[in-house]
Design a protein around this nucleic acid. Structure first.
Lengths: 119, 119
DNA sequence: GTGTTGTTCAACCATACGGTTGAATATAGG
DNA sequence: CCTATATTCAACCGTATGGTTGAACAACAC
């Protein structure tokens, strides 16, 4: 039961882990777009962009409607909501517990050195 | 400026796109864990699990504190919040517009055939 | 010191990913 | 019919990913 969910999250997060595909989603947030329109902004072949579209479709993030010879895509919000929901689980870590965490980190940082996010 | 943000989202979403790493995060949600403890539930070598931990650390999702000879990890909520924020942008698509979308999809499905996820 | 424990490193391997190109497909328009 | 347009498919290529193994390193125990 959970496996299926896991696999879905795998493909969804993987799809989101590429700036090209995220940009495409952003584009689709403005309304439906054909594959060609989605591909246009990118400096890559149409075939490559088509693969990205397919990845998004595969993850269930978009829906495709073959309208004549063009393929019109639109956002399919379901899986995005799933990913969002998954992440929401951690919300308490940056709300409820953030102050506690911050305090711990400050203690730690004071103990070790100046430190920061990036060494 | 946005590039940096993009790269961060790349690594964060990529890190999240693996069930092993998500399970590790879930584990860390229960409190700090050593690398060994994180690795234990999985049927893979410690070296492999260590790579996953490193991926999470690389994405900024966890923090590591070398305590003696053990490496203790804990959640670092910042990047998770970033990913969550990114996804939140789409919230309106499954709240405001979901009903509109649903209506459109129902029309479409009625027009083409019975259903349509898998051909 | 020796030995054991926790973790990483390095080399390697198979497979997946993202890109290319050129051919194939399907539809629209003359 | 023929041609142009929109898109995919197939084969290929370089690199990244996720896994293995065995050696190395660091810190505790004796």
């Amino acid at each position: 039961m959970v496996e299926q969910h896991d696999v879905q999250l795998d493909t969804v997060f993987h799809a989101l882990g590429d700036a090209t595909r995220r940009t495409m989603l952003l584009q689709l947030a403005g309304g439906e777009q054909t594959v060609g329109q989605l591909a246009e902004p990118f400096a890559m072949s149409l075939a490559a962009a088509s693969k990205h579209v397919k990845a998004l479709e595969n993850a269930g993030l978009i829906r495709r409607e073959v309208r004549g010879r063009t393929h019109v895509c639109r956002l399919a919000p379901g899986p995005l909501a799933s990913a969002h929901a998954w992440l929401s689980f951690y919300e308490r870590f940056w709300t409820d517990r953030l102050d506690v965490l911050e305090r711990l980190l400050r203690e730690e940082d004071a103990g070790t050195s100046k430190e920061g996010h990036e060494p």
